[in-house]
Write a protein that binds this DNA or RNA. Structure first.
Lengths: 169, 169
DNA sequence: TATTGTTATACTCTATAACTATA
DNA sequence: TATAGTTATAGAGTATAACAATA
């Protein structure tokens, strides 16, 4: 349990983090907005899946998912295969073009992070990801972080970053 | 410097954090969307300021700021005073009604955080805020975190959370 | 001529609700 | 009757560009 001032500060950070997201989206190709990139990323990471599953992973309504999926399907980056087990649903799968596109996206965004986060350590990056995942989890977004190995908050922190760590801002 | 997989994970978390923001915005009054709440919060925290300064703090374009400000001004939550030093600009100030509104917002959002983050420690909340602020800072959002005392990443972590800390997810 | 702020326009992302087709 | 997915519609947030008033 934390105090009110801390919650207010967290709310403020959440409100302002959009600036970072917009910065990231600025490097995306014009025919691949953030929603499309997210679809490709999740299919690349988790493999073939149905719409409902993808909607869960995206943490948005299925209707929204449907639109994003239509967008990437129109561009040939994924295919929607029939599901033999349930003819109402469709199996989503990255095409070769989709894999290629995803690889480009991944490279360019990683490059941007590498530029901007050059003074961050491995561990700090992992810690932030981990805490953000936990935040989503705490807010009911169950699919938040299942795979990520979890960067071990406590020990690792001061073990790897004894010097860089206390940068206040 | 971190590796590509870590950057991808961070990108994923940034992409999905919107679900938490939407959850927070769901408890806002119908006449006070997130943009308005942000204006009130920043004026409450930093005191009177001009449009340009507010736009910086919000980390959005001045045109966007102008719209949010018009919204809250229309509802009597802030007043736009003439700036004696420069007649082009206006000084923004919370009214009594604005302070009251802000207090309600702060209480309800803190309540939500207290509910959802009941198993988070003070330090973890502070650490997440701190890292998010640093992320914004690294992405060129200079106004990211000036005031926040900085929860001292390293030592404090394992000092206060030796047990709760390793929750993987 | 440069700057502060406003307004018009357009785009993205989102949710709700109505609808189709299966189960 | 319930579920998987699509589509129509509406609302919030954002940016760019054109514009007004003042420096």
């Amino acid at each position: 349990m934390a105090e009110r001032a801390q919650y207010e500060e967290l709310a403020r950070q959440l409100s302002a983090i959009g600036a970072v997201k917009r910065e990231l989206s600025r490097i995306l190709p014009h025919d691949c907005p953030a929603g499309s990139a997210a679809v490709l990323t999740l299919l690349g990471r988790h493999g073939d899946m149905r719409m409902g599953k993808l909607a869960e992973l995206l943490a948005v309504d299925m209707s929204v998912t449907s639109r994003h999926v239509a967008h990437v399907a129109d561009r040939g980056w994924i295919e929607r295969l029939p599901d033999p087990a349930d003819r109402r649903s469709r199996i989503l799968r990255l095409t070769d073009a989709g894999h290629a596109r995803l690889d480009e996206l991944s490279r360019s965004s990683s490059q941007l992070f590498a530029d901007r986060l050059s003074d961050w350590t491995d561990h700090e990056v992992g810690l932030l990801s981990h805490l953000m995942g936990r935040l989503r989890e705490s807010f009911g977004d169950c699919r938040a972080t299942q795979r990520p190995p979890c960067p071990v908050e406590a020990e690792a922190v001061h073990a790897t970053e004894p010097t860089t760590t206390r940068t206040p801002a």
